[in-house]
Write a protein that binds this DNA or RNA. Structure first.
Lengths: 213, 213
DNA sequence: CAGGGGATGGCAGCAAGCTGCCATGATGGA
DNA sequence: TCCATCATGGCAGCTTGCTGCCATCCCCTG
């Protein structure tokens, strides 16, 4: 199936027919350029408030890149959707509806995207289980927003790795070609960023947020 | 495709033809009752030592239920395979070969298992990405074996909470009605248990393992 | 009752971490 | 060019964490 138009035409009923759950795994938010699709899900989401209908979105950090995207996600979350961020490279786009239908989007080139729709129980069930595993380990969007660690620059991650490796400050500083003073300054900054009072706490936060890998 | 025999007959070449990577996600180890399949992968695994061939197994904790299973996994790991344990409910069985082929096993009833084999790049790619996300968040088998935290007594958890709260040793000791010396002894023991070289590392482990909440 | 073993805690000394202060060097704009 | 700004790093002094040693206490067993 090629192109968003064809998808909406031929699989639109799958979206509007969602009864229990709508799951979306994606690398970014480029998707849903088509107003029709947005609308169909928008309707569903409005229903999520009252009824037993769940919307879950699992995204990469890149989906938080610009302010517009963040605002959009905040809005989506306010409408009752659960949004989580995974630090690993996610599939370009995967949609799971009611544990029964799976839609995969591929976008290699600049042209129209290609979609694969399947309802095979084995396939959908298998992917759903993997999704659950990925979901469990992802962090809540709110955790990302509540001044936590939206963006931790490369330097900080390097420091984090040294700390995580269990090196002493002296060793770590030598490994990074920094003076002891600067290394410790970095650690202090990092701890301030993580809002940690002790190194233990910093490690805890880092672990919880899935950083430092 | 029904039954292990048919799988081996018709898809055996996919196993033996694996060149770069063999990924196996499963809930338990009931699989591979068929000697042929075991053998094919056994061969591959032996090759994993020298060449650039990776074997990764992602399993549920139930795969560690009995001693025989643990021994088997230890053996598998010794042969160069990477084994990780995920705490979420995994698909009954999913196999990914060289990022090109995917094999799904379904086992509803007591009868023969049903298999689905696909090479669709979109499907395999999508599932692979989800697998990566699940893999990232799973814990090393070695961590499970090396007496990590199957059992952490109430005292240790108390210590962990104090550490997590960011209290200094002196404050924490006072709060727990312990002497500074004893408190620190406890922390040292805890760190030994967690196999941590620094308090940061201990925090990291604690966070990763989901303790101290 | 005597003695062994384990947990506790005081003490001391050392190692590690933390931070204010200031000098130096690089960068960048007026 | 001069000046402001910022990141770096050396130094010093202080706090905190770490651990070996030994005394004490409690409990259990013979």
């Amino acid at each position: 199936m090629r192109g968003d138009t064809e998808l909406v035409a031929r699989a639109g009923h799958l979206f509007t027919g969602a009864r229990v759950e709508f799951v979306c795994v994606a690398r970014d938010l480029d998707t849903w350029a088509q107003p029709e699709a947005r609308l169909a899900i928008g309707d569903r989401m409005r229903a999520a408030h009252d009824r037993s209908f769940t919307v879950r979105k699992l995204l990469s950090p890149s989906a938080l890149a610009d302010e517009a995207a963040r605002a959009h996600l905040r809005m989506v979350a306010d409408n009752g959707a659960q949004v989580r961020i995974s630090t690993t490279r996610l599939p370009h786009e995967t949609i799971l509806i009611d544990k029964r239908v799976m839609i995969l989007a591929e976008s290699d080139g600049p042209g129209e995207r290609e979609f694969t729709v399947t309802t095979s129980p084995a396939l959908v069930g298998g992917v759903y289980a993997l999704f659950e595993a990925a979901w469990e380990s992802a962090t809540e969007l709110s955790a990302y927003f509540s001044g936590d660690v939206p963006q931790l620059d490369a330097d900080s991650l390097t420091i984090l790795r040294e700390l995580g490796a269990g090196h002493t400050d002296e060793t770590a500083a030598r490994r990074l070609g920094l003076s002891l003073r600067t290394y410790r300054r970095r650690v202090a900054e990092l701890m301030a960023t993580l809002d940690a009072d002790s190194r233990f706490q910093a490690g805890l936060r880092a672990g919880e947020l899935g950083i430092a890998r």
